[in-house]
Nucleic acid binder design. Structure first.
Lengths: 187, 187
DNA sequence: GTCTATAAGACGATAGAC
DNA sequence: GTCTATCGTCTTATAGAC
């Protein structure tokens, strides 16, 4: 793998695990055996540019992943439940959720850096759009589809935060039992 | 106000606005005209001890606030809607939600410091207990009351994160339109 | 494109006077 | 209980050799 991709991959994982400020450049560099010179060659504007690139990459990963899950399940309900199952498995393996959430970065950086805020906003918008489209194919109205897409995004992100705080996957499991009825009622 | 309380109040606001790592000790000290010597007299273990004290204080503030709102509204539905209204007002005034959320601290610190994680966990548990009790008085079963309490906490915290990311109160407003039906269905 | 060495500053924390 | 001065350490970022 080329140096640039290696840097992005390593940094993405570390940022998701520890947040932005807690991860030093030296830590990223050590983790993938790259030196400062190389980093500043690929990212002239330094750490923040690296973070934003990571967020763009995450956008693509999440999109293709959700699309794949959605194509395997006809109903939004089954698709969402399968997504949450994957999150739970991910959490129980790594003690943190890598690859899906970026709440640490959002809450740490959204008020500090406008470019980062915009990148995070695009990511959430993207996820909600995927939910929205799936709901439309099931006959939901445009308004209720977008409202439910938002509720799904919010409750899943909130549940992930509770999981991290409690050190347990229970919150995600509980959410999974309640979401089906929400989907049915608002159809 | 005594120096210790002044430090706690100032630090609480700053931590909620900017997160933990982004706020330097010097910034807190300048904001309330206190010197390093005084801070380390009241908090010998430094910044992290100050944070944990802030979280404990936040716990009491949130508890009394939610209890007051709950006593003014008979149904959980009305109480929650009134709570969200207050969050929206808070957000539109300050561009950040001060006094209620601590998501920035959770996601930044939960994986980094075990004492902080425990303090955050206690805070969420407390909030969920308040919801839980209120739901019990309305005749919800014990299990469904605790499940809904969790969903309420998760979806509101998630919505706050979306508000911060999008720089708009719309996510909270949307959540408010959906929560009533969730409360009715699971009764 | 990658390396090392170094700059310049911020950080949390401490010591000792008052 | 509060003050100032200072200590190490860590941080991001740069300069210049290869």
């Amino acid at each position: 793998m080329d140096t640039k991709s290696l840097l992005i991959d390593t940094a993405t994982t570390l940022f998701q695990q520890k947040g932005y400020k807690s991860v030093g450049l030296t830590e990223i560099l050590k983790a993938c055996n790259v030196t400062k010179g190389a980093l500043y060659h690929h990212f002239p504007n330094g750490k923040e540019e690296l973070l934003i690139t990571c967020l763009h990459g995450l956008n693509e990963v999440i999109t293709t992943d959700i699309k794949a899950i959605f194509s395997r399940h006809l109903s939004t309900k089954d698709a969402i439940l399968s997504m949450i199952d994957k999150l739970i498995l991910n959490f129980e393996k790594n003690d943190t959720i890598i690859g899906y959430t970026f709440s640490s970065i959002v809450s740490e950086m959204a008020t500090m850096s406008e470019p980062v805020r915009i990148a995070c906003s695009a990511l959430y918008e993207n996820i909600q759009n995927l939910y929205h489209e799936k709901l439309l194919t099931e006959g939901y109205s445009n308004e209720s589809a977008s409202a439910i897409a938002l509720l799904l995004t919010a409750s899943i992100e909130g549940a992930i935060m509770l999981c991290i705080t409690q050190n347990s996957a229970t919150p995600l499991k509980t959410i999974a039992t309640l979401l089906p009825s929400i989907l049915e009622v608002n159809k």
